[in-house]
Design a protein around this nucleic acid. Structure first.
Lengths: 260, 260
DNA sequence: GACCGGAGGAATGTCGACAATATAACGATC
DNA sequence: GATCGTTATATTGTCGACATTCCTCCGGTC
């Protein structure tokens, strides 16, 4: 219900109506550097707490210190890097005291996502859920392979990201991306290294089922409980549902320390 | 329940136990510039869509282009500035197509906030609500004064920010701050200028009452409905609850165009 | 009369260099 | 023996300058 019957004769169609081609946006150098740095943090190459010497990293990226420093400020704003005046850049650390804060933020975002998805009509709900189901399948096969915890962790975070992305909200998707990287930082900051919970498949199957059924409250409860246990684990208060085995029969675990 | 009975004799108390003084953090130049720029955008000095010439702004700030450009990247990450390669910086515009996205994000954050607050026990709930009640009083007196819409808008946004801040979550608070500034950008981007809805006090009184009573679902519904109408208004589909009068008897309105 | 193309000007993107600061190592002192 | 003060090194914070790119204006052309 917008501009009911006014053809706007003064303007030409091409200027006001829907464009026929998608606008392209050439990425700036800072864009490229930022992607690279974020990937290095997410991948564990730049370890939490380690210092980022500008000259060294800039040289590896093939640029000068200027663009690198500009890009670094984006990551500072994201909470992935921290600066102390005169002491330069460090990769952020997310320790016991901050884990609760982080997962509360994730609950806000992802809780909203599952509410939105659950509230859709059945046709759209099935469509969006299908997208996420692919990610669940990827998680299942990662657990099936069972070689290292990092791959499982990747699939896990991919799924949570996809959950938010499937709402179509650009802002929340971008913020989810930030929180996902912070989650990885928190995992890498944990002294025992990367640990996957044993019931990871059960949790996510339940979550997806509840979303598919339109059970918003149930899905939120699942998220909340899942996050709560993970927080306790990362804070060192809980070890029970996180035995190092995740569905493998021989008892050898997924505990994986990428720092080693 | 953490490290049950281990006094950790090898480490000295001062290194592991609670510090006696609060850590200070001297702000960097980029920090200061960022605050200044954000305030200029929020205040309307830097108008949505206007270009930010680096040399000019840097000179006004009393710094070189380097630090300014670094600071600008923080605001780019926040979505307050946009860059096109070669074409420099512009203040972001949030038009019809983006308003929905923005207010959905706010609903995610603020909805979570009111859920958290509503879920507290009565004592804490009363305490936090008291903090927000001060902001409601400020909004009331701004409406009472009724001189310009901008002051009312400030009080409105202050209240919503305070709602999130009172949860104590640093990440969500920081993100709320970003979304608040974007909300201001959206308002300033509106061709008709700054408009305040007539029932602004009713809405926020209801909201705060519901939070105080622990009615999470009701508070979320209030937020949702309020945002929905505002989105419709900003998209130009709705004018009804936004007549220019907000509680004043003489009919003269709050419509205020800061661009004029 | 509107569109296309080119020259002029201005602003950006990037770099190297310098001064200021923090860190580390070393020695002196209680 | 531990702490404090000093020195040396390395890194950062900031600036000015240059090449490149984009925007605007103007004339030519259909």
């Amino acid at each position: 219900m917008n501009t009911p019957a006014a053809p706007e004769p003064s303007r030409r169609d091409g200027l006001v109506a829907r464009p026929l081609v998608k606008a392209v946006r050439r990425p700036s150098t800072v864009d490229l550097i930022t992607v690279e740095l974020r990937a290095a943090i997410y991948g564990g190459t730049l370890r939490p707490g380690s210092s980022v010497r500008e000259a060294e990293i800039a040289a590896q990226l093939g640029v000068s210190r200027g663009p690198l420093r500009e890009s670094a400020q984006r990551l500072v704003q994201e909470g992935l890097l921290v600066t102390r005046p005169g002491a330069g850049l460090r990769v952020a650390m997310i320790d016991r005291d901050e884990v609760e804060d982080l997962y509360q933020a994730r609950l806000a975002i992802e809780g909203h996502a599952v509410r939105v998805l659950s509230g859709l009509d059945e046709a759209q709900r099935a469509e969006r859920a299908g997208t996420v189901r692919v990610l669940l399948a990827a998680l299942e096969s990662a657990v099936e392979a069972g070689t290292d915890a990092r791959r499982i962790g990747d699939a896990d975070l991919d799924l949570h990201y996809g959950l938010v992305e499937s709402t179509g909200n650009h802002r929340l998707t971008a913020y989810a991306s930030t929180l996902i990287v912070q989650t990885r930082i928190a995992a890498l900051s944990h002294p025992e290294g990367y640990v996957v919970r044993t019931d990871i498949l059960d949790v996510h199957r339940s979550l997806l089922r509840q979303v598919t059924e339109g059970d918003a409250e149930g899905a939120c409860r699942t998220l909340d409980e899942h996050f709560r246990q993970t927080v306790d684990r990362l804070r060192g208060d809980l070890t029970e549902p996180f035995s190092t085995v995740a569905g493998r029969p021989d008892g050898s675990g997924y505990t994986f320390n990428p720092l080693a």
